[in-house]
């Protein structure tokens, strides 16, 4: 398994029998999962099912213990013997945390410029400004410090920072969990718009079933002890999706199905 050649598949992300342990405790047990390019997939599951860990493994923030994990879309192959990735791929995957994680001493603009500065690339001012504009931050806000911005604005800037290096894969770990429902719905719609426009592949971790169904093409329901993918539900509603979708009976059926699967995993 360790010498597996680069996957010759059309997947964006491919996981085979991925195992992850923390201090002898099995967190992910033989996870098989493939995500297609430009797919929007959500991971839902109870606390401790390893959904965040799965996301962090894909991001390269954690290393797998056995199995293989590859991102053929960006030419990255990972198994326990080839941990870490090449510098050319920096910025090909981006991560949005639950906290905005902005640097409090930098303006909105400079926070979005940070990925350029860390990776030593020339700062593309036009791109930063257009990215900020895409996430709904107006020019009047560019020079403001995070402490003068609302929680929703900070999260928008955090998303702009993730998008600014034009990643192919966007990994999001409960990014809207701290926001109120109204703002969450608004940002869900805006994220879908960005996803459709930028040909992104998005893996979205959330506790919120409605949010997962509304945005995703597939919802992976995970179970705990040990963490595993219990089932994957396709969501076939057409895009662009409107808010009214959530009050349709098909949406309710899908919601009930995912809820039921979540119940099963808890048993």
């Amino acid at each position: 398994m360790n010498e597996a050649p680069l996957q010759k598949t059309s997947d964006a992300i491919n996981l085979k029998k991925v195992v992850k342990q923390f201090g002898g405790q099995l967190v992910l047990d033989a996870v098989d999962f493939a995500i297609a390019p430009h797919e929007f997939v959500s991971l839902v599951g109870p606390s401790g099912c390893g959904k965040s860990t799965l996301l962090r493994l894909i991001a390269g923030l954690e290393t797998i213990d056995s199995g293989s994990l590859s991102l053929p879309l960006i030419g990255r192959q990972k198994n326990p013997s080839t941990q870490g990735n090449q510098s050319a791929q920096i910025g090909e995957t981006a991560f949005v945390f639950q906290e905005s994680n902005l640097l409090p001493w930098l303006s909105a603009f400079d926070n979005v410029a940070l990925p350029f500065r860390i990776t030593g690339r020339p700062v593309d001012r036009d791109l930063i400004e257009s990215t900020l504009d895409t996430v709904g931050i107006s020019a009047a806000e560019f020079a403001k410090l995070p402490k003068h911005l609302s929680g929703g604005m900070k999260m928008r800037i955090s998303i702009a920072r993730a998008l600014v290096l034009k990643p192919k894969v966007l990994l999001m770990d409960e990014p809207f969990a701290a926001l109120d429902d109204l703002l969450r719905t608004q940002l869900n719609e805006e994220l879908l718009r960005i996803w459709a426009g930028d040909k992104l592949t998005i893996v979205f971790v959330t506790h919120n079933i409605s949010e997962a169904i509304f945005m995703s093409q597939r919802v992976a329901v995970m179970g705990a002890d040990p963490g595993r993918i219990h089932d994957v539900i396709p969501v076939s509603f057409d895009y662009p999706r409107e808010k009214s979708l959530k009050s349709s009976s098909d949406f309710a059926k899908c919601f009930a199905r995912v809820s039921q699967l979540l119940e099963e995993t808890n048993r």
Binding site: S87, F95, F97
Partner: peptide, 22 residues
């Protein structure tokens, strides 16, 4: 802050960059 530290890891920041930018 752990989240900010991970952000720098994500972009493979060098030790020196982490020191003077974070």
């Amino acid at each position: 802050d752990n989240g900010r530290y991970e952000l720098f890891r994500l972009y493979r920041a060098s030790r020196f960059q982490r020191l003077y930018r974070l």
